[in-house]
Amino acid sequence: MNLQLDFPAVLERWPSFLAGAALTLELAFFATVLGALLGTLAAVGRGTRNSLIAGACKVYVETIRNTPLLVQIFLVYFGLASLGLKYSAFTVAVAALTINVGAYTAEIMRAGFEAIPRGQIEAAEGLALSRLQIYWHIILLPAIEKVYPALTSQFVLLMLASSVCSQISAEELTAVANYIQSDTYRAFETYIIVAVLYVILSLVMRAGFWSLGLVLFPRRRRLGTPL
């Protein structure tokens, strides 16, 4: 076996790698924001007394959590196309990732809601807070604070999972790698570089979420509980 690695030949394509990494982060950002909203709504919906809404939310969460992301992406991609709707690969990718991460967020948020002690809500009612105030101050914000670590690792996993979007030709990092390796015939070096870039991206995201947590939850910082 003659093993000759030539990293410089691949590294000179760094502008493409950088553009791919930027698009991966962009995908992850939009899907995280939209997915967090969708997931929170689904978690709230699952807790309502209306059995139709609760049932629909349960079906959504269980369906998404028990099928592969790749299949979901193809279903959204071809589903929209068969309805005659034409969107860019980026839009389809954001939509599919949002639907996917929304289900996982819903499950995490539900655990957060269940961890709110009943007495807190009763106390808030006793203090004559309105229902909206109770939901916001007593249930939603403390729940997010409780599950923040689980949420953030889910969002990092989402960023990694966005690599699957290369299969519908969204030009993110993995798609860029596929293109460069077929152009340079240096598959090993290319994928090693991309793997390192993903590790860096996930470390950057973790650090970002950690700092965000310090800003968002000063109480947690004061108590010294780990984020």
């Binding site: 990694l160 690599s163 790698a177 390796q181 598959a187 994928y191 793997a195 996930s202």
Partner: peptide, 13 residues
């Protein structure tokens, strides 16, 4: 910190 897809490509290609 690495997507499974990239590990697969690394192992195959």
């Amino acid at each position: 910190g690495t997507p499974l897809l990239v590990i697969l490509f690394l192992g195959y290609f």
